[in-house]
Structures are given as structure tokens and as C-alpha cells.
Nucleic acid binder design. Sequence first.
DNA 1: ACCCTATCGGGACGCTGTTACGAAACGGGT
DNA 2: ACCCGTTTCGTAACAGCGTCCCGATAGGGT
Lengths: 196, 196
Amino acid sequence: MPRPKTHDEALRVRLLDRASELLAAEGARALSLRRLAADVQTSTTAVYSLFGSKPGLVNALYSEGFQRFDERLRSVPRSGDAVEDVVRLGLAYRDSALAHRRLYAVMFTSAVPGFEPDEQASKLAMSALQPLWDVVAHGIAAGAFADVPTEVIAVSCWACAHGLVSLELNETLPREIDFCRAYERSIRANANGWRR
Amino acid sequence: MPRPKTHDEALRVRLLDRASELLAAEGARALSLRRLAADVQTSTTAVYSLFGSKPGLVNALYSEGFQRFDERLRSVPRSGDAVEDVVRLGLAYRDSALAHRRLYAVMFTSAVPGFEPDEQASKLAMSALQPLWDVVAHGIAAGAFADVPTEVIAVSCWACAHGLVSLELNETLPREIDFCRAYERSIRANANGWRR
DNA sequence: ACCCTATCGGGACGCTGTTACGAAACGGGT
DNA sequence: ACCCGTTTCGTAACAGCGTCCCGATAGGGT
């Protein structure tokens, strides 16, 4: 009976797509609701009826980001050697982060001031790293890694990769390093440090 | 001949102190020029004549933060064993970060939207990690670490610590971990991975 | 043709960083 | 003693932000 809905699923994906573009092209500063709404030829109200708030919109981007992360990591082929597999996952992690560096900033540094992921998004984030957990658990069971709780080694590997990527994206590092090579060596050394 | 200056060095430190407090107590969101100026009983103009802009103010906080970092790391006693020293520096790094967690967010994640450190501040940031570079270089020279460029191992250790602290502060980690112990073990494993 | 109602867009509110401009406050010249 | 010139500072305006309210809208049922 009322006027037809235009704030529908189609508009939702258009908003998300454009928000991704804005974020990737010009960073978190440029992601304003007014601009976003204007670019998609709607009003800011659309964001509120579809996402609840700006943090709600960012939460959707966050979830999308971790979903891509999930797919990317899950598609990494296994070698059977635990250290080698950790290295492969680490390289895929970096590739994925560099491919969407602004989104990575939203996911791991609080680039959007008011935003914090809701519980569902946080679970999605953790589950994206399941491949790493699997590889580490398998490595421990096979006797390749030290006999400590899986999380300890998995978090260590994750943090090593995350720290390297984070420093690289922040451009905090000395410029003259061949970072790609150093990255792989570092991931490998870290994993080797956990050998039995 | 003109009216006496009140935007002087004393006001500068009062502004910085209060800005630190606001940042530590309520986070980057609460650090607004109007509020800051009101709290110190001056006007926003003061920030502009003393720091040039809000990013300028944050740049000063950033520098202060790395200076404290520098002092903290420089005061860590050396044991002579390279791996042990890396672990000690890592623990001090975490202590310092946890003691000023909001400032850490400004220093390593871009928590204040418009801010990027100027060249001088960036140099200060690098020099704060000199102790780590020294320990690693000494470890390589003594044959404890593999014979690779110093930066490679130093950045690896730094990234491992930074990644762990970053994930801890971001509360991205599974809750049930005894993080303090896991942190030390992880730093040690990473350093051990670089053994010759 | 009319009304009812869910829905949407424009505009208001309070906030932000930044800047332009007029007021203020002093020393020196008349 | 008065006034002026110069420098410095606080106020207010501007553009933009996220958010929310309220009036306009557009369709189906009577």
C-alpha cells in the first residue's frame, strides 16, 4: 500500500560497491555519507535504513573484507610441510592486504573513527584465519612444531605477518629494503622458531 | 610594542599535556581543538600559532611518544645473549605500548584521520628502535644470528612485537589466551628462528 | 476520487578543522 | 597625557561531517 521501496537489496550492493571504491581510491577520509549518497543518486537516509549508521556501513565493508580474506586463504594449496604451508599462507595474506590496502586499514587499524565490528563480524574475522589454525594444529600433531597450544603458534604466525604488513603499509620502514624477499624470510624464520 | 605573547612555550606544553590526557582518557575522537582550547582556557587559534594545525599538534604527540619509547628501550639492560636481549626489548616494547595504548594507536595506526608524521618525526621514530638494531647487529657479528642484513632480522623482530601488540590492543584475539606468556614465547621463537 | 500508510528526501542540529577579521594591548612619538 | 602603530589574540563565519526529524510522496483499498 505505501510507496514502493527503493532502499532495497540492489541499492545496498550499489552503496557497498561505491563505498569500496571511495575507500580504495581516496581513503577513509573521503568516505562520507553525503558523498556516497550523492554518487549513488540517493539520500543519506538510505544508509540509515539499510545499515543503521555509518559504522554499520563500515561493518559491512569489514565483513566483506574478511570474506575475501577467507576465500583467498582457503584457496592456498597445501604442501604437507607445516613451515612451508605457514609461509604460503603468509604470502597470500600479504597479497590480499596489498590488493586492498585501505580496506586492510579499516579491518586492522581503526581507520574509521567511530567504528567497531559487531560480534558477528568479529567471528567472521576469526574464522577467516581457520586455515592457519588448521595448518598449525596439523604441524603440532605431526611433531613438526613444539607441543604448545595451537593458538600460541597460530597467533605468533599471524602477528608476524600482520606486523610486517602493517609496518609496510604504514610506510614506517626504511625504504631501501627489498621487502618482498624480507617478508618471506621473516615468516619462515618465525615458523622455524616454533620447530620442535 | 605589540601586546604581550601568551601563545608561548608554557602554553605549548600545557596544550600538549592536556591533549595527552584527552587522548589517553577518551581516545582520538575526544581530541578536538575546541575542547582542548577550552580546557586550557585559551582559543583554538593557540593551536594554530603553536602547531600550525591539528595534524601539527598530533605530530608533537607522536614525537613525544617515540621519545618515551626511545628512553624506555634504551634503559633495558643487556645480557650479552642476542636472543635474550631481543626478548627483553620486546617485553619493554609491549610495556611501553600498553602504558600509553591510545598514543600507540596514534603512532602506528592512523587513529587521527588527517595526520601523517613529518620527516623529522619519522626519523625520531626510527632512531627509537636503534637499541634493537644494535642488539641484532651484535648478534650477527657474534655468530648468534644468521648472516643476513641487519635490517632484515631487526624488522622481523620489530614486526613480530608490533603485530602482537597491535592485535592485543585491537582486541582481535581470542580471549582465553594468557597473552603475556604467549607474547614472550612468541618473541623468543621468532628470534630463535634467526639463529645461525 | 479519496484517504491511509509505509517510505523517502530535504533540511535542521550540533559537532568538526580551518581561516579571516576586528578587538585588544602594549611601546613610542607627539 | 594622548594617540597611534604594530603585533597578537579571541570571535565568528565557513564548509563539511554524522545523525535525526518531519513533511512530501506514491501507491493500494474503499
